[in-house]
Amino acid sequence: MKNAHIVKVLQSQFVTHDVKSIKVERPENYEFIPGQATELSINKRNWKTKKRPFTFTSLVDSNYLEFMVKIYRNREGVTNELGKINAGDELILHDVFGAISYKGPGVFIAAGSGITPFLSIFRELYKRNRIKGNRLIYVNKTSEDVIMGQELFHMLKNDFVNVYTRENVIGFQGKRIDRNFLIENIVDFSQNFYVCGPEDFVKTVTKHLIDLGAEPETIIFDE
């Protein structure tokens, strides 16, 4: 296993009904930029070669690495297995990769677990007192699906817009991110946009943004 590191799980706990925070040891000189990811596999027989990509959500200088993993219990796959992982178990880390990185203030648009690369970016900006000027539009089916909602609100205050597609909660918007939503919620289409979520979501949102005047080079997403 070239460039692979076997690391011990330090902490493993659910942060929503189907998302788990997994913290592992950090290998020496293992560097990443906020927004980047690695492939993880489980250091158990039959699972070592089954790699899946996950984004770092920890700060760049923390002494551990953290991942937020959406657990699909109805599939006999890696995430279902990660749902059973506890402190003391071992994971295998691989190379760092990823196209999402911070290019300056802008609007972040995330769906579901697409928030993970942005979590690392926001945590880093907040720590350095540079989060002002950034806005987050975060789409989930219901309020129970929001990952680290309290922390995001604490960091972003009124620049955190929650959108629920399947729930009409008073004070929250129950709707989809379509062209009209973007027109109503974004004043300036000449700023940076960061988009992350399911492939169709990223394609649709990117197309709407370009139609509304955003320059393709100001839209940052993982290709």
Rank of each mutant, 00 (worst) to 15 (best):
Y194C: 07
V195Q: 00
V161K: 14
T79I: 10
N162Y: 09
R176N: 12
V205A: 06
K23S: 08
I177A: 07
F221W: 02
L182W: 10
V139M: 14
Y126K: 11
R52A: 08
V161C: 07
D188C: 08
G106L: 11
N63P: 02
V139G: 04
T16S: 13
R52W: 05
F56G: 01
F122S: 00
E28L: 12
K44W: 12
F181D: 07
I186N: 04
T165A: 14
N29E: 14
N63Y: 07
Q36Y: 10
I121K: 03
Y102P: 02
T116W: 08
K8Q: 15
V195M: 07
N46V: 10
A110I: 05
E31T: 08
S190I: 02
F67Q: 04
R26L: 12
D145R: 04
V139E: 13
F160Y: 15
G98F: 05
Y138A: 03
T218S: 14
I85T: 15
L156R: 01
T38F: 03
I219L: 12
L91Q: 02
S12G: 06
E217Q: 12
A87K: 15
L152R: 00
G35T: 03
F172D: 10
I71Q: 04
I109M: 06
V187I: 12
R179D: 13
I220E: 03
I147R: 02
D200I: 14
G98A: 03
G114F: 01
F160P: 00
K44A: 14
K175S: 14
G112R: 02
L93A: 08
T204L: 13
K84I: 00
V7C: 09
N192Q: 14
V202L: 06
Y102D: 02
K141I: 11
D159P: 05
G35R: 01
Q191G: 06
K70W: 09
V9L: 11
R75K: 15
D200V: 13
N3M: 09
S190D: 14
V9A: 11
E25A: 12
E76P: 09
V163P: 10
F193T: 07
G133V: 06
T206R: 15
I170P: 13
Y30T: 00
S113C: 03
S101Y: 14
K20S: 11
K20C: 12
H208W: 07
R135D: 02
L209Y: 11
K132V: 09
I6M: 04
V163F: 06
I147S: 01
E223I: 11
M1H: 14
F153A: 00
I183Y: 03
G197E: 12
S41M: 09
F54K: 02
D178M: 13
A110N: 00
Q13L: 09
K157Q: 13
V96D: 05
D61I: 04
L182A: 07
L59Y: 08
E223Q: 13
Y102W: 11
S41V: 10
I186D: 00
F153W: 04
E25D: 12
